[in-house]
Design a protein around this nucleic acid. Structure first.
Length: 459
RNA sequence: GGCUCGGUGGCAGAGUGGUUAUGCAGCGGAUUGCAAAUCCGUCAACGCCGGUUCGAUUCCGACCCGAGCCUCCA
């Protein structure tokens, strides 16, 4: 088997073939750092982190870039509203973004280019588009002329004529065509800006990705990812900028993840149902959030609910219980991860639900295996789980660490278990059951085994 | 209006032209002082109507319902 990915451009699953043998370049649209990341923002991060893990197993060099958009109207507004500097806002939320994403067991990207560090590249790109007749300057703006590109709309399956028919936007009078979009716009005196051939200003939203891809990854890259909503206009416009400023291929595979809904509704500020990752982490461990995001295929909508999170937690409890049962067994490798069914599922357009089913099969095999087979099975199980970015904690910490301050501490639990042991020894089962019920009420589940009584939280 | 994408058992969620997805929940059993964990067994599905086919949940068409994009947005 080899990697297959659904390419938005062709609308089909395709065999993945990197441009340069053994080398993969991937760019994923990152956050605009003006507030906390919500669970919807986290989905592409977890999805493409999982793809990153798969790619690293298959290819010698994988460069994964995820940008930080640190100049934007929303940031300016946020700074103004809170009376803070732009940098203070972007620094804070860049840091929190990294922390929150790390809590979801996502690996740091290879590169994290910042828009404000690449202004020169954006200016050069705009100049080139003007030289080539694909852009023009009007009323202090540099604008991309969509009519100069016959294939504009190929990614999103739109034609300019159709878009005009449904246009609901006021068309700025400085645009030649209503579909023309801003490459560079003038900045007011009290707004951040950079000098350019067209006056002091700042870049349009789409420009940074085209410029930073070229600057950091090259004229052509293998994979470009992001949420579905970016297909139009963002990625369409990136294609226009990049293809018209340089002949040849831009992106080979376009990947887009579907949305996260909250209790069946679209998450939006107006509905007041935006759930920040930081807030969710107060109640659920990052691994629970990660697994919840991976329970549905990335191209299907995911309905986020407390039910989903409880199920994810329950599933992880089960896996960690499996690991606890083989805790004394030393895993024995090496494991050829590419031969694992879990990995094969991931290589089929990141079929994470199937991969999880295969992981369940492996857990079952581990339970049933003879002692001689367990070291290898444990190694395979752990490696397979790692390709999904889960199950790398110790069973003890997962099952027994308190997640809230008001929980019974381990010493008190052990003490009650000892009392119960004596009661059982005295055949005082009524007392033993009373103690067990008390612990149960406190959220502690007991399991009697030949080696003694085990306990875990979350009952 | 234009362009996309969906509707699978109680729930979540893959997949396939003809033989059980999987997990959770349920039911029966083994085990246990009783439980838990584990194991064994078991119930149950493919929106509606046509068509193609020896045979369709899977292909084609219509219909119903739902979602997204076209405006900042993961």
């Amino acid at each position: 088997m080899s990697l297959r990915l659904y390419n938005t451009l062709s609308g089909e699953k395709e065999h993945f073939e990197p441009r340069v043998a053994d080398t993969v370049t991937m760019y994923v649209c990152g956050p605009t750092v003006y507030n906390l990341a919500h669970i919807g923002n986290a989905r592409p991060v977890v999805v493409f982190d999982t793809l990153f893990r798969v790619l690293r197993e298959r290819y010698a060099t994988v460069t994964y870039a995820r940008n930080i958009t640190d100049i934007d109207d929303k940031i300016i507004a946020a700074a103004r509203d809170s009376g803070r500097s732009i940098e203070s806002v972007t620094d804070e939320f860049t840091l929190k973004y990294r922390e929150d994403m790390a809590a979801l067991n996502t690996l740091p990207p290879t590169l994290e280019p910042h828009a404000t560090h690449n202004i020169d590249a954006m200016i050069r790109l705009t100049q080139r588009l003007i030289e080539r007749g694909h852009a023009y300057v009007s009323a202090g703006h540099a604008l991309f002329a969509v009519e100069s590109m016959p294939e504009y709309g190929a990614l999103s399956g739109r034609r300019l004529d159709d878009m005009l028919a449904g246009a609901r936007v006021d068309v700025a009078d400085y645009k030649r065509h209503p579909g023309d979009f801003v490459l560079w716009k003038p900045a007011a005196d009290d707004e951040p800006g950079w000098d350019s051939p067209w006056g002091r200003g700042r870049p349009g939203w789409h420009l940074e990705c085209s410029a930073m891809i070229r600057e950091h990854l090259g004229d052509s890259i293998d994979i470009h990812g992001g949420g579905r909503d970016l297909i139009f206009p963002h990625h369409e416009n990136e294609i226009a900028q990049s293809r018209c400023s340089h002949d040849g291929e831009f992106v080979r595979y376009w990947l887009h993840n579907a949305y996260v809904d909250i209790d069946g509704e679209k998450m939006s500020k107006s509905l007041g149902n935006v759930r920040s990752v930081r807030d969710l982490l107060q109640h659920y461990r990052g691994e629970v959030l990660r697994l919840a995001l991976l329970t549905a295929h990335y191209r299907s909508p995911l309905n986020f609910s407390s039910d989903l999170l409880d199920q994810a937690r329950h599933t992880l409890d089960g896996f960690y219980t499996t690991l606890r049962s083989v805790e004394h067994i030393e895993p024995v490798g090496p494991v050829d991860i590419t031969a694992e069914p879990v990995f094969a599922a991931l290589e089929d357009d990141l079929n994470t639900p199937l991969a999880l089913a295969e992981l369940h099969a492996l857990a079952k095999a581990l339970h049933k295996a003879l002692d001689a087979e367990r070291p290898r099975l444990k190694a395979r199980f752990l490696a397979a789980a790692d390709s999904l970015g889960i199950l790398q904690a110790t069973p003890a910490s997962w099952l027994q660490d308190a997640t809230a301050a008001d929980e019974l501490d381990a010493a008190a639990i052990e003490q009650l278990i000892e009392q119960r042991r004596r009661a059982k020894q005295d055949r005082d089962y009524a007392l033993a059951d009373t103690i067990r019920n008390e612990l149960m009420a406190a959220g502690i589940a007991l399991e009697d085994t030949a080696e003694g009584t085990l306990w875990r939280r979350g009952a």
